[in-house]
Write a protein that binds this DNA or RNA. Sequence first.
DNA 1: TCAAAAGTGTTAGATTTACACCCATGA
DNA 2: TCATGGGTGTAAATCTAACACTTTTGA
Lengths: 224, 224
Amino acid sequence: MNYYSEHSKVWVSVDVIIFGFDENKLKVLIGRRQMDPGRGEWSLYGGFVGADESIDDAAARTLKSLTGLNHLYMRQVGAFGSVDRDPGERVISIAYYSLINVKDYDERLRRDHGVEWIEIDNLPKLYSDHNKMIEQALSIMRQKIKTQPISFQLLPSLFTLTQLQRVYEAVNGEEVDKRNFRKRIKEMDFIEKTELIDKKSSKRGAALYRFNRKIYNEDPNFKL
Amino acid sequence: MNYYSEHSKVWVSVDVIIFGFDENKLKVLIGRRQMDPGRGEWSLYGGFVGADESIDDAAARTLKSLTGLNHLYMRQVGAFGSVDRDPGERVISIAYYSLINVKDYDERLRRDHGVEWIEIDNLPKLYSDHNKMIEQALSIMRQKIKTQPISFQLLPSLFTLTQLQRVYEAVNGEEVDKRNFRKRIKEMDFIEKTELIDKKSSKRGAALYRFNRKIYNEDPNFKL
DNA sequence: TCAAAAGTGTTAGATTTACACCCATGA
DNA sequence: TCATGGGTGTAAATCTAACACTTTTGA
């Protein structure tokens, strides 16, 4: 087992960009870095890739340890590998983004980890190249939300059309026309109206909808 | 400098997917692997990331060593990190794709490296996860070619509209209407008609065009 | 003279955008 | 009763897709 021994090894880490939707805003979970170098700086949450785990597993483990949640929607953003990106050592990092429903996230756990939801339009300067990671993640996500049913990951399983619209608007940073939006929703049979009414958001009450993945899989035509 | 010493290091490599356009087909440069493990298997060309070079630099160096060409168009595809992806050791690899004009590539150099242009529709089973890398690269490139002026990277600096159309068709794997295609080209002022005529492809001769990056930068609206 | 590729407009259909009012209800 | 968010349709404008013939010239 010495095939590549003339080459040097490096540390590889994962950084997770966790997007959440709250108060009609798209937010990211960041915290103060609790280790050197860079202790105290705003930072994404991350971890090192172990010798016996895949990079996807490392990212899923990192996500789990921060949120307590399994099976989150998660996609790779890319590898970041400037020589000096980490002020301490040479570390190559692979960024992943994840979408979670803020309500699923235990507040206690959040505080224990010392992380906070910060609006994407309001991010501070972050450790290393983490701002760049978030920018790239956002840009990928903006593309994706138009053609893949991922908006639902940011909402409870039952949601109103206005909520869905607000997610879409928050991600893209611009408002859309209510009637045109709903017209498009009506064409997607996998966004099912339920009998349930949400009374929290208005006096009149709004119909609750649900994403039906079975129907989606039969005819995966998503277009917003 | 012992910040991360409790964590393990891994080898990181880069693999380059070099796309070329020839005989109206999109092709990829692959060769027989000349080292163990996997000696003799069809494989992408790759290299290890050095301790003191960025991953982008490693990819550019690898590209240069294979093609002799600098400043090639090159973009990251992503990181591939299954534990067992390499049969010999744990190696995380970062894939990049590049677009080159086949005519710029010295045939001698190609033969010296033992690599060949193979049609993307006709690829053999490749070493490790290299087929997956190519698939992903293609999918990214297909998106990109619709909204970014990258088709030109696969052509000589002077090209006919038919050539440009064939590139587009080869990448997307489907034919498009000649008149509609040309209508869209006419709307992009940065695709300039020159006085020159190409007589190689037809008796009548076809006007040669050129991509003007200055004009493009002033009004970067590319849409095919 | 003819085969082969270059070049050129129009029209129908589909998609997208803009836009304003009534409804139901709890406070 | 009124303020708040929920819910609904139409028409103009734009974009997309389909389609066929003439030109030039070297062999």
